[in-house]
């Protein structure tokens, strides 16, 4: 169980004199749900962007499954099985729910540069796409365009799309942001279910969700790791309490 799947060493990102992420060391162990929490502006999302190379780190190294991915492109990292979601729901609005999932399934063909072929050949992914939609409770919306779905359903669609890649590790950026309570419960259960044979790293503000789901929590504040441990340990840590409630931030 001590097998580290994703590790960041001395991860640093500077934006013109402002240090957003400052020497973060992070170790995510295989099979865990690892949460990254911290007050606003702590550098959580920047950290996420660095890990998936949507931003390039100023310093530091990232290894995934023992492989140095610091210099790789975002798309190539995704191809290794490390797939991220986004804070704002990331769907393809003018495609149907089915097509959204199919875009991910289509990745199995490798690159799709065959512009001379009819997209009819993609219908062989339909069945699997439908079963993924069923898994997140969107069966009846298969032919609805993504932009017409409610916010919670868009998030569910996003998860179905991500799962279609069958990633080894998921990075979820605030999966519950802006969600109604009923949706929160549904997605929590969904994350629990999909975590069965995967590793998940998530940024989340909803502490009850974090408490329910995660095995390990890393608390970030002002770009640095403040504390790490399980929920009980972290929530008792006076520095964490101070960062969240006390003076000194904002």
């Amino acid at each position: 169980m001590n097998d580290v799947i994703l590790a960041a060493e001395n991860l640093t990102k500077e934006f013109k004199g402002f240090v957003a992420v400052d020497g973060v060391n992070l170790r995510v162990r295989r099979g865990q749900i690892h949460a990254l929490i911290g007050p606003n502006g702590a550098g959580k999302t920047t950290c996420f962007n660095l890990l998936t190379k949507f931003l390039s780190p100023t310093r530091g190294t990232i290894t995934y499954g023992g492989k140095d991915i610091t210099a790789m492109s975002s798309a190539d990292i995704a191809r290794l099985g490390l797939v991220r979601s986004f804070q704002i729901s990331a769907v393809f609005p003018h495609l149907t729910a089915l097509e959204n999932v199919r875009i991910a399934l289509q990745r199995r063909r490798g690159d799709s540069f065959d512009f001379w072929r009819s997209q009819k050949i993609l219908s062989r992914f339909d069945e699997e796409a439908l079963s993924l939609l069923a898994e997140v409770g969107l069966s009846e919306f298969a032919n609805t365009s993504a932009s017409e779905l409610s916010y919670g359903r868009k998030r569910a669609l996003e998860i179905a799309t991500t799962l279609a890649l069958n990633p080894e590790m998921l990075l979820l950026d605030e999966p519950m942001a802006g969600m109604a309570q009923a949706d929160v419960e549904r997605i929590t259960a969904l994350i629990q279910r999909i975590s069965a044979n995967r590793t998940i790293l998530m940024v989340e503000h909803n502490l009850s969700v974090v408490a329910t789901l995660s095995n390990t929590i890393t608390v970030l504040a002002r770009g640095k790791v403040l504390a790490e441990g399980d929920y009980a340990t972290v929530s008792q840590d006076p520095r964490v309490v101070e960062a969240y409630i006390g003076a000194g931030h904002g």
Binding site: T52, F54, S73, S74, A75, D76, A78, R79, V83, R84, S85, F86, A90, V91, F92, P93, H94, L95, I103, A104, R107, D111, T161, L165
Partner: peptide, 12 residues
């Protein structure tokens, strides 16, 4: 529709 998302799905 959504370039970052396409990248995150592994499309170059």
């Amino acid at each position: 529709e959504n370039e970052p998302r396409a990248i995150s799905l592994g499309y170059r």
